[in-house]
Design a protein around this nucleic acid. Structure first.
Lengths: 242, 242
DNA sequence: GAGTACTCCCTTACGTCGTAAGTCTTACGT
DNA sequence: ACGTAAGACTTACGACGTAAGGGAGTACTC
């Protein structure tokens, strides 16, 4: 009567749980409802499953957090163009690094929780390592020393992943009343805010354009590093000044 | 029979709970046992009190987190020297800002939990505002436009408070086995780490000297901002190039 | 084809967290 | 002496991560 038992689902045709399905669901859930909503029970429900079932595929919640970050960086890796700067174009490293970083940022903007998780887990998964490795490779191609590269990585910091933990997250303008109150004990800041707030009222990107700010800071750093690179190269060709 | 009731403690000579005492205890507890140990119950116990008693003086835990950050910045404010750069020393702003930031860092090093709380609460308490205001004031004194100052603040980011959320927190050297494994899929990074790890093996500040890295990145930024300031000043005295 | 083992999901329950709601104690003004 | 109100305590709830073990289904052995 009917097809073989191995070909028919007796009642629920649910696809089996896997590590990948769990992580994808976790990422989706965090995208949709925010990081706080990513609980084991909520995640299980979104998978049509009980909370404890997840533990068969992943050891604990930290593994899930590490996993979704890994997933995100896989997504980032999919978007990079492979060729670096042309041979002999020593100054081209900065543009190449810039593009890699802005590419990462484009993905992170779709996963606003990722920076938070990266920070709190201090994760360092393979896909992240590869991302950094690619950038080190580009820098190395410009002749920079390992030492300078190392310092530069620290200077760029988390910006290498495409984000900065924004101070004051000033997405919305401060309420007018508060600004006057601020005037009494933080006059310089109040004056600046009053001035800057009207620079570009038509901007669709909010009161402060985060993308512009991000690129400004990034370019500041890249510029400085480039100057160090040139100084280093010059010192190599003229070893001692005295 | 003895002194007046108002002068003697009948049994327990415990000092009364206050907002300040609670916050100080919270700060101390986090210093000693880490941020995770800062729970309402543990905090209460360190005060010789029940958990719910705290709620008479502070509305909830977030208020405590905001409070300890505020406390930290009060501590920072106590350590700043008041005079800015000399009159007419436009380039002196960088040194003054640098000192303010490194001063904040000195305090934060005693409160390692503070950066974490600042990030997760995105706090912006009065003492923090004043700290930023002081820096804006110094920059303003050098003739920088509000616009440039604003961009610069974003670029400096949380470094303005004296910290960077370190990527990879490489306080200890990577285990030797892992480095070989890394070699296969992250050759550039592995090469760099192998090279840099031996640069200064006698350093007492750990494998990577965070203070050095912090100052490197800070100086990169200050340098870049100074160049922007000069460019801006030049553009002002020669409004149009064509 | 019966027994066995393994895979995968579920049930129950524990300890910890922040905190809502209400109660008791103490000191003071009258 | 007696309200009264400040300030601490008691109890309890719901959410969290997860330890421990149960049980259905499938597959493999002899």
């Amino acid at each position: 009567m009917g097809p073989k038992a191995s070909e028919v689902r007796t009642s629920a045709p649910r696809t089996p749980l896997t590590r990948e399905r769990v992580l994808q669901a976790a990422s989706d859930l965090a995208d949709r409802d925010g990081l706080d909503a990513l609980t084991m029970r909520a995640l299980a429900e979104s998978l049509g499953v009980e909370a404890m079932s997840i533990y068969y595929h992943l050891p604990n919640k930290n593994a899930i957090l590490d996993g979704v970050v890994e997933l995100t960086f896989t997504e980032i890796a999919a978007g990079v163009q492979r060729q670096g700067p042309a041979q002999g174009d020593a100054a081209g490293w900065a543009a190449a690094v810039r593009e890699r970083i802005l590419g990462a940022r484009r993905v992170l903007l779709r996963h606003p929780w990722a920076p938070v998780v990266i920070d709190q887990r201090k994760s360092f998964s393979p896909a992240m390592v590869r991302h950094v490795d690619g950038i080190v490779g580009i820098m190395r191609g410009s002749g920079m020393s390992h030492d300078l590269i190392h310092h530069s990585l620290h200077a760029i910091g988390n910006r290498i992943y495409g984000y900065v933990q924004e101070l004051s997250d000033d997405g919305q303008a401060p309420p007018p009343g508060q600004l006057e109150q601020m005037q009494s004990f933080a006059p310089h800041l109040a004056a600046m805010l009053a001035d800057v707030a009207h620079v570009d009222p038509e901007s669709t990107l909010g009161w402060c354009d985060d993308q512009t700010e991000f690129e400004f800071g990034l370019d500041l750093l890249l510029e400085g590093i480039e100057r160090r690179r040139i100084a280093e190269a010059a010192a190599r060709s003229a070893p001692a000044t005295g």
